[in-house]
Design a protein around this nucleic acid. Structure first.
Lengths: 225, 225
DNA sequence: ACAAAAATGTAATTTTGCTGTCATGTGTCT
DNA sequence: AGACACATGACAGCAAAATTACATTTTTGT
């Protein structure tokens, strides 16, 4: 399994290369768009991880070049948080997945494995439960039609809960997916984050969706006692 | 389900081997990193439990060797509280898991079961008897379709009984699996716990499923007298 | 580049409800 | 009957989670 990363930010690039190597992948790293595109077009890679913002040719450019060369290789985009249009456009042009910076490494790994396994074309659908809806691409949340503004952490916490709705998620799992924390540090960030999320998503509505399972963790579900 | 433990500390190693055997796993135990790595690479195991500190090759070394051999077997690390933080960048942590020593045996068991599930991606593992159903992943119990809320202890007690349905389980076995104690006889926690579980699971239903075997322990079974 | 504002993390305090202990009741065996 | 094993209910201690306030970091707007 050979992966090409195109990322100009040194810190992120090195971090990715090292992490993915340790995870058992063969990794090449290009620091700018032109190198990146040339390497990508050699056709040696099983997967591309592209930053959108690049010197030379940007992520889309590489994507177009690769697709024009009729290569069917899966592509994962790294994009900045605010630029919604980028994501929409990127996906329309044939990216297979995207991640918003900053991201938890474990999340990246999970997406990469999933792409590697299933190949491309993972349909990205919206998540919902009861009258709560979450538009992944636009990063928008509504409950009974009303728009709710969530911060980055709140959003990815909710996203995780929803992706695994009905499952009780332990704090350590949540910590590893939403924060990039390794070991059980004695912090209560998660409790506080859940509190904040509840205030926005549950407080003014019925039924309550986020449930605490004492000693276990949190679930999102419709409680059908 | 075959597990390899690599642990040089004799006490911990034996404790793990015995506990996991009692829990119904097939267990091998290696006392140093070199033996451990060789055994691990035979590919016979479904899960590894590795101490990080080992004579010969340490836990990380074994991890790398295994990953280089392209084996996708889940790994659970045991680590001491003080060292760690710097050494581990949390890479791979999304895929695998860790525990900090000293740990509760029941905690270990829970992690192992969760890892085993992920590794195999096998269909949903539900336990049931008569009209009583227990969904491990969702941590949800129903009897004749009705949802029953159980506390942590109640849940793991019921889980144990169900995994061994039809077997009479002694108090000391129950104590070692559900509580992390060496059974000192002048406590009746288990009796009380069974009582509470019965109140929720048996009291309002027929037939009664949890049976007391005087002088022996408890069983869960459909009584065919 | 700076200050203001928002997001996020930390810490202290209150609330909640699980869980172990104990006292007592009930059935069972010799 | 007496001894024993288990059942049951009450209760208090305590750990987990909720909540609040505050500190710190990050983002935003000028």
């Amino acid at each position: 399994m050979k992966i090409l990363i195109v990322e100009d930010e040194h810190k992120t690039g090195d971090y990715l290369r090292q992490g993915l190597s340790e995870a058992g992948f063969v990794v090449d790293l290009a620091r700018d768009g032109i190198d990146g595109m040339h390497l990508a077009l050699t056709g040696e890679y099983d997967l591309l991880v592209l930053d959108v913002m690049l010197p030379g040719i940007d992520g889309w450019g590489i994507l177009q070049a690769v697709r024009r060369a009729e290569q069917d290789i899966p592509i994962l985009f790294l994009t900045a948080r605010d630029r919604v249009e980028d994501r929409v456009q990127g996906l329309e042009m044939g990216a297979d997945d995207y991640l918003i910076k900053p991201f938890a490494f474990s999340e990246l790994l999970a997406r990469i494995r999933s792409l590697a396994r299933r190949g491309k074309s993972k349909p990205i659908e919206n998540l919902y439960i009861a009258d709560l809806e979450l538009d992944i691409i636009k990063r928008r949340v509504t409950r009974s039609g009303q728009r709710i503004d969530l911060t980055a952490k709140e959003f990815s916490l909710l996203e995780l809960l929803l992706r695994r709705r009905g499952e009780v998620l332990s704090r350590s799992l949540i910590a590893s997916q939403v924060w990039d924390m390794n070991f059980d540090s004695d912090t209560n960030v998660i409790d506080v984050a859940v509190r904040r999320l509840r205030a926005k998503v549950d407080e003014a509505y019925e039924p309550k969706l986020i449930r605490t399972v004492r000693g276990m963790g949190y679930v999102i579900e419709v409680d059908e006692v």
